[in-house]
């Protein structure tokens, strides 16, 4: 097995565990490169089917290209798509720095959607290599009654045995891509021919490495206009993937606070 095959097999194992053990389960689809890989792996795990709902928690502030992408592929991939809105920024914690406050809308939208649909499990495409707090995540990451993540007291997770049963009123985040690196996502997307939003590819010396809300996401300087060029760029870059995501950098602990509240 090569490296990508091994990553894929591990992710499929995680997805099948979640599907076997959790009754109300959904995939979170942010339309970005990682969650597209998740959807692709779901289809691999279930032999071409997507036997669970796919939810987009929509801030209403995504790029137009992202909405176009959502419409096209939810049809082509025959997805049971759920779109849930986020509350206005005025309702968010005013002590958060501006971008984090904006990002907090997504958490609030997600929590509202959880309550509305009663999901026991949400599959999300986060990776350990994205930033420090995600490095500490589990494949099956339990959330408390108020959907909070207790990062200081996480359950042990070993030997491919995951925490798959929970007290009533709590839910679990399932992270099938936890062990992938950013470059793996690109190599796999290339190998499998997974469609991607064109904002990732350089135009006029700039491209997006990570996609979020239009007003708090910024492109990085790059001339990588093809998959090959992006992979080559990532093999040598020292710029962090989420450097264009404003909420990560406003204060040392801003992102950690967001995640403890339930942000992905």
């Amino acid at each position: 097995m090569d490296h990508l095959d091994a990553l894929e097999a591990e992710s499929i194992h995680v997805l099948r565990e979640a599907f076997a053990k959790l009754d109300k389960l959904a995939v979170l689809w942010s339309l970005g490169k990682d969650s597209n890989v998740v959807l692709w792996l779901v289809r691999k795990a279930f032999f071409g089917h997507v036997p669970l709902p796919v939810m987009h928690v929509d801030t209403g502030k995504k790029f137009k290209q992202m909405y176009d992408f959502r419409e096209r592929y939810s049809r082509e991939w025959n997805l049971k798509l759920i779109v849930e809105p986020c509350p206005p920024i005025e309702q968010m914690d005013p002590t958060l720095p501006p971008a984090a406050r904006s990002a907090a809308r997504k958490t609030a939208g997600l929590n509202a959607a959880l309550a509305k649909h009663g999901f026991q499990g949400l599959i999300a495409g986060i990776r350990r290599d994205e930033e420090g707090t995600r490095a500490k995540e589990r494949y099956f990451s339990p959330r408390g009654i108020d959907n909070r993540w207790n990062l200081k007291d996480q359950p042990p997770e070993f030997w491919n045995q995951y925490m798959t049963s929970f007290p009533p009123g709590t839910h679990v985040r399932v992270h099938p891509l936890l062990h992938w690196g950013e470059i793996d996502i690109w190599r796999y997307s290339q190998r499998e021919g997974i469609p991607l939003i064109d904002l990732y590819f350089a135009k006029d010396g700039k491209r997006y490495r990570s996609l979020g809300d239009e007003d708090i996401t910024f492109p990085v300087a790059s001339n990588a206009a093809t998959l090959d060029e992006i992979i080559t760029e990532l093999e040598t870059t020292k710029v962090a993937e989420r450097s264009g995501r404003a909420m990560d950098h406003e204060a040392e602990d801003a992102f950690e606070r967001l995640r403890a509240e339930g942000y992905l």
Binding site: R128, D129, E131, G132, T133, A135, K136, L151, K152, Q154, G181, E252, D253, E256
Partner: peptide
């Protein structure tokens, strides 16, 4: 020790991973 709490207490709480 990317987490705030760890920096303040000076010990590693959980398992961190980087490439």
């Amino acid at each position: 020790d990317a987490l705030q709490a760890e920096r303040d207490q000076g010990i590693t709480i959980d398992t961190a991973q980087i490439q």
